[in-house]
């Protein structure tokens, strides 16, 4: 049993009825929300709004810095960097969302199964998860790229599989705690079925933690997916993607023209920082309020 350290002041605030609906985020929290909203907007509309064709190259503009109409200049192929960043938001953000959604879904399902049935099911699933822990996400993605060929899909599926046990382990504890509550056994005695109890009672009561886990996972997924694309095993050049752009810009960076790599790095780091900040906030809120 882990020891919960609760900040008494935060708890009082958290339990105050007026603040139940809107979580306390503070300035940095809302800034994070804004960054994430902008990233989502770009992921949906970026490719349509990009001022130029992100894959159109014009070698006479190779590594030309910012000029009028091209605020971030051109990469070594003479492609507009701003357009590539806007178009690249889609695979970067949706890729990470896809990975974290699958991992959350699988992890939650496993956690609910183990919590509900306990006993042998719990032992078996937990042992299977222990084996999966032996594969770091990046390693699994590299092997997947070797087997199925490098693509965003194979990298994404590999990462989802690698993340699921982490989700399952965290949620299992919370689900077990909820499962042991008397209201569950009271409802069970009244003849309510396992499906209804799990989906209508267990699941909603650990949902805050699930959301928090999903947010944290999204950050990890973005970093790992970008790293895999950086290695050339995810999204394939010339398609625009922030991870791909970091590696495409590396040759120019070493020759003293860092704008391409660094602008992609800034995009990745700001979204990741925003997501992980928000995830931490949500997690401490959910742990504090959801006892």
């Amino acid at each position: 049993m882990s020891i919960e350290i609760l900040d008494p002041v935060a708890e009082v605030i958290d339990n105050a009825p007026a603040n139940r609906r809107i979580p306390k985020l503070g300035f940095l929290g809302w800034l994070s929300v804004a960054v994430i909203a902008l990233a989502l907007f770009l992921a949906i509309f970026g490719p349509m709004l990009a001022p130029y064709d992100p894959t159109l190259s014009n070698l006479s503009y190779s590594n030309v810095g910012p000029i009028a109409g091209h605020p971030l200049g051109f990469d070594d192929q003479g492609r507009d960097v701003l357009s590539r960043l806007m178009a690249g938001a889609r695979t970067t953000i949706f890729g990470a969302a896809f990975v974290s959604l699958i991992a959350i879904f699988v992890g939650t399902a496993l956690a609910l199964l183990t919590a509900w049935f306990g006993g042998k099911t719990d032992t078996f699933i937990s042992a299977a998860l222990d084996v999966l822990f032996a594969f770091p996400g990046i390693l699994l993605a590299v092997v997947a790229a070797a087997v199925f060929g490098p693509s965003l899909l194979s990298a994404g599926l590999a990462l989802s599989i690698a993340y699921s046990p982490y989700v399952a382990r965290v949620l299992r504890g919370a689900a077990l705690k909820e499962r042991a509550m008397t209201y569950i056994s009271a409802l069970e005695v009244q003849g309510f079925g396992a499906w209804r109890l799990t989906l209508r009672h267990l699941l909603p009561n650990i949902s805050a933690l699930i959301v928090a886990q999903g947010t944290i996972l999204f950050g990890f997924a973005m970093v790992d997916l970008a790293a895999i694309s950086f290695l050339g095993l995810g999204v394939q050049s010339p398609n625009a993607d922030w991870g791909v752009m970091v590696s495409e810009g590396k040759t120019s960076l070493l020759q003293g023209y860092p704008l391409v790599s660094l602008s992609a790095v800034v995009c990745i780091v700001s979204v990741v920082a925003a997501v992980s900040f928000l995830g931490d906030r949500l997690e401490s809120n959910s742990r504090g309020g959801n006892r």
């Binding site: 970008a226 970091v246 790599s261 660094l262 790095v265 780091v269 990741v272 900040f277």
Partner: peptide
Amino acid sequence: TVSAALPAFAAAVILQFIFGV
């Protein structure tokens, strides 16, 4: 906080640019 949000590949290109180039 800053260095926690810095993925290894991002740290790599930043370090290469500042301390190498």
